[in-house]
Design a protein around this nucleic acid. Structure first.
Lengths: 224, 224, 224, 224
DNA sequence: GATGAATGAGGCTTCATTCAT
DNA sequence: TATGAATGAAGCCTCATTCAT
């Protein structure tokens, strides 16, 4: 169970990845990687719409025309960058234990991990949300990732219903969507829009509400 | 109690407007209104970044140069349009009764009203979210609106804690933020990104989780 | 009877002419005309492929962007220019008398008129021939024009066959094409490619061969 | 007597080639030949102006940089290709008998051979005509070739005047130019611009007109 | 006020040519 | 010789903004 609303990785990312072939030479691979690195920094600083191709090549310290050796458009490069972003969330998600802890404990760990991953990638997450609204391709990546998560959370809720830990009248699919939304949006408002929250309290409240909503017993922690 | 994360209206909107003076003549007021109407349609169709001044004037059937008689920039006009969007949410919010119903009933009505208002304005809400990420002015409008709501929800939760309906260990401010996020984000994913949810089930689940999270008793409805 | 291989005028030209609407104001019409004038000069100097939009706007003494107020592409503007070229040939063609002279006399006048018109427009004729090879639209204009002429010459030959002035075994359509080709290509080699011919002798030889090919009696002129 | 308006071959072509030395190795010769083959195909498909160095190397399946091992420019390579085109016309021309047939018979064979050669090379002939308009070097090749032919045809006409087969008042040089233009241009309109002519009728009409223009007796063939 | 033409800075893309491997 | 990556000048097109009528 976790709030990862992003893609599991290669399968979906691959479906969207560039048609441009892998560079043959060592040098080519290095240049391509430089461009992706530079692009991430520029996207974070300026957002998707305000990023110029020239900003990226300047940041990567290559000639303007070199961009077109590897990418057809800003859009295509952005998808590469988003693919790496997704990978980081995936890594975080996989570190959440599925067994050996109480439900409340697992929920807390997942929430904390999600917020951490979000903080590491906050600027870029903002850009991703922005781009997803108008760009169908980006939206598809975003929704694919969300589907991956929803399925996981839904299964976890269902499992807990079978084990009698969560009431049967709750719809697992809708609940997974709603509670994921809660954590995801909270992270966005905090880390992208800049609302000044405090981490300990954020994790505590999100976890407490998450558990309460599902009828899971949990002893509140008293924060200093 | 409601999920309105948008501005209460004139006070905040007023703080941002004011750049261009109200037209003096009848004709001027009509032209100005035409531009705002047209702008809303174009923003909904193309998003903020892809809207051109020329798109708006063409849609409004006025000359290109006429735009600058009334607005200094696309940005300023967008704030006008967002101001009208906010007004619709405010109207909806005010129709939610604060007394005379059970907490669970009030929460359900607020949730339903929020989703309705969101649906009426879905395209534009998407644009607003998009613009809020990169544009500080728009972000300010968005966050002001959110603050308004948080204050209301926070006070409602606190009142219920005083009355013993909600456990004392819950932080009202964080909880108001988190639960508002849940409803707001759910609406976004449904109505902007296009996830196919069903209204009855959406309201039921959101309300049930909202109440459960706060420890409020509520008898689940059985949907057909 | 004449060698005009170019269009009669409005019908065909109109079919190809620009979609861009006539400018509304006096000033707009003047600017548009300036651009067409300038374009003709630049096309003549540099040919179609080597002409830059910037060359045209510089020659017309307007800003670069002004080009796009009136034309979508170099291609569209070129069609306008070619339309004016065609008009000149049409004017020339109409001045050739259809009656009141002997067949040989009419042929000579037509040949001379064709060469004159060609000389007036030599540079541009070269560009037109060049463009017609690769550009389907331009080719269509060129061939439409040729068809117009072929029909005229064909009818004239047929009339002379009926009157017994030309042998019946000659195919009027093929003959019209071949003899028109002779005059047209001779003009091209002379006036575009720069072979140093002399006008009197050119008219005399073309006319003598033209008549001889059709079996028309003609007394050769002795040139000084 | 023939209508070959193209170069006889090595002498003129040699005057323009010579820039890049013949490759020393076997492998080098093969690569160079691949490039020339590929270039012909690409020029035929895209025309001179729209052909990119990269198109040629891709078609030849060699690396982009390899081009510059053998050629200095697209222009130089084009001259190579045109040289091969000319060779084909020369081969055709040499197959026309100079003796042993009547004048009318020789003219007919030459016309038919010219149209055949033109058809084999139609696409490239179109490109050549196009390039000759603006490119002085290509124009020179074209005109050199034409001069070669004019000399031949002029000599043939003069010989026939001496023998009393052609009237003396005809100027051999102008007539050779004009009649060559007729056949050459007819072929162009038919095979490059795509006018739908039929071969038998084309040869018959061209030959009949050619003979008639020179006052040569010829019995028209009746086509089925 | 309204009009629509004019402006030109700014960003995009191409591609001939060079060069290190 | 062959490779393919890197370069950057050159041209294209857009569109926010100004301005004369």
């Amino acid at each position: 169970m976790n709030q990862l609303e992003l893609n599991e990785g290669n399968d979906v990312g691959g479906a969207h990845r560039a048609a441009s072939p892998e560079p043959v030479t060592q040098r080519g691979r290095r240049t391509r990687a430089q461009l992706i690195d530079a692009a991430r920094r520029v996207f974070e600083e300026k957002g998707y719409a305000d990023t110029r191709i020239g900003d990226i090549t300047a940041e990567a310290a290559v000639a303007h025309g070199t961009f077109y050796t590897y990418f057809e458009s800003k859009h295509e490069l952005f998808r590469e960058v988003v693919g790496m972003l997704v990978s980081d969330f995936v890594t975080e998600a996989r570190s959440v234990p599925l067994v050996g802890y109480s439900p409340a404990e697992r929920i807390e760990r997942a929430n904390r991990g999600y917020l951490w991953a979000y903080r590491r990638n906050a600027r870029l997450m903002g850009v991703l949300e922005q781009a997803a609204v108008m760009d169908p391709d980006v939206r598809e990546i975003r929704l694919d990732a969300r589907h991956t998560w929803v399925k996981r959370a839904e299964e976890a809720i269902h499992r807990m219903q079978v084990e009698g830990q969560v009431p049967a009248h709750i719809d697992p699919y809708y609940a997974a969507n709603a509670l994921g939304s809660m954590v995801d949006r909270f992270a966005f408002v905090w880390l992208v829009l800049g609302e000044p929250f405090e981490e300990q309290q954020a994790v505590e409240t999100l976890t407490q509400l998450y558990c309460g909503a599902l009828g899971i017993e949990r002893t509140p922690k008293v924060l200093p």
